[in-house]
Design a protein around this nucleic acid. Structure first.
Lengths: 254, 254
DNA sequence: CGATAGTGTTTAGCATTGTCGAACGGCGGC
DNA sequence: GCCGCCGTTCGACAATGCTAAACACTATCG
């Protein structure tokens, strides 16, 4: 297997470092964090800055992410076929369910939110497109882990953080939940990630019968659940939406 | 001036090519478009794919943008100081004005939308964060061109496309509009970019008195304008918002 | 059905290219 | 004014990534 290009890998590591850590980092911090000579790090940063992937604060000289990333990231959304097909159906789901709708795909060790429909009321909500959700505790993540072998492998390897008192972290318990998810065809999240928040999600398949994403509805546990279980009509709506998107992607209905 | 890193420049060109052209491109297309040997292009693409910046369709083997760009792009939004300061004020502006609000900064040869508040009604709207607007025909663009010398230079160099019958493309006419913008402290766009759409925008300054962005309100010309001119109360609201954000950024009010 | 023209991928060798360590100019603060 | 640290530049070396040609593979077409 051929090796990858060193300078590109280092540049990518820099971008991730800038994305993960502090808002702004100095050259020396970056160089030492990646184990590079200052001049090497500087050359990469200079190029990244020239291309717009990184910006430098004129006062402090520190570096931060650049605007070009936002522009390219949005065009990624435009190119995303799954998202384009789902746009029509997710709106209806949010309207009929009265809750926020999320569309997620596997990325790295989590679920990347590629579409988010606000809960249909006038409350102030922040868009979460581009955000990541954990695999082991969210409805979207459980669906992907249950139906996508790659996601399952990532789930096993990833460390499973405890978010609330109801978060399931033991591998055996999680596997049991995934078996249930496969049997039912949907997954739930009852306050396992955020206190007071519950969710239901179902898998989306492409023409090869592969799980390529998950769609789910999320809201206050009092509205989403009844007697500790998600309301059956919500589950039905979510599964209908997932089936509609799958059909649009070319999946044959058995 | 030291030279930039070749492989990084080529990788960036590839990403821009993938963002600009067709949804998916083959290796041969990419290599010939950039004037590279196939193996060279392949090495770069292989690394970009491994880092998540590019994805490859398993069936056709073609390449498209990757999910990591979306993740990093939204992180850029989190890091963006201007956007963070503006969040509070733009909501109020949208509510009081009853129209959609945009926050833009200069990027390349245009205005990059870094924040977008939906018009406060139940209509279906698409988020335009990450999209670009032209400098010469939009209210945001005119404000930036009038108060930011860099934006002005870009405007002069850029080709000024005609979008509607009211688009101003002559350099002299534009300069006159920019003089007016500087004198008034705000800019307008009356169906110069999109038919039936008008806008008002005002500049945001930082602690060095430099224009770092623009905030504006956009809506149907019938609602935004009266007798061919933007409604005075809308202009006042937009300017108030711009002043509030500037103050939050540390700009002294004279 | 075999030939052809594509595709994306891999291999080998060369020299271009990016890396390194050290020195430079500027700034802020013990 | 000194010291320490910052980001930046310089120059030399060799590791690195580039080029060109050959490799499998699929789809197309005579």
């Amino acid at each position: 297997m051929a090796r990858n290009i060193q300078s590109l890998e280092r540049a990518a590591a820099m971008l991730r470092l800038l994305a993960g850590g502090e808002r702004r980092l100095g050259l020396s911090d970056i160089a030492s964090a990646l184990g590079l000579a200052k001049a090497t790090a500087h050359g990469i940063l200079r190029t990244l800055q020239h291309e717009g992937f990184v910006e430098q604060d004129p006062d402090s000289g520190r570096y931060q992410l650049g605007a070009e990333l936002l522009r390219l990231g949005t065009t990624y959304l435009d190119v995303h076929e799954l998202r384009a097909r789902a746009l029509v159906w997710t709106d209806d789901l949010a309207r009929s369910g009265g809750e926020a709708v999320y569309l997620g795909v596997l990325h790295l060790r989590g679920v990347l939110v590629v579409h988010h429909v606000f809960r249909p009321d006038d409350s102030r909500q922040v868009l979460e497109v581009g955000a990541m959700q954990p695999l082991h505790s969210t409805a979207l993540g459980k669906v992907l882990s249950a139906f996508d072998p790659v996601a399952h492998a990532e789930l096993v390897e990833a460390e499973r953080e405890r978010f609330t008192s109801r978060t399931v972290t033991g591998l055996d318990d999680i596997e049991r939940a995934l078996d249930l998810t496969r049997a039912q065809g949907y997954a739930t999240d009852a306050e396992e990630t955020w206190e007071g928040v519950a969710a239901v999600a179902a898998p989306i398949f492409d023409r090869h019968r592969m799980a390529v994403g998950a769609v789910g509805i999320t809201g206050a546990v009092e509205r989403v659940c009844r007697d500790g279980e998600p309301r059956p009509e919500l589950i039905a709506s979510v599964r209908d939406t997932a089936r509609s998107v799958s059909r649009d992607l070319g999946a044959k209905p058995f």
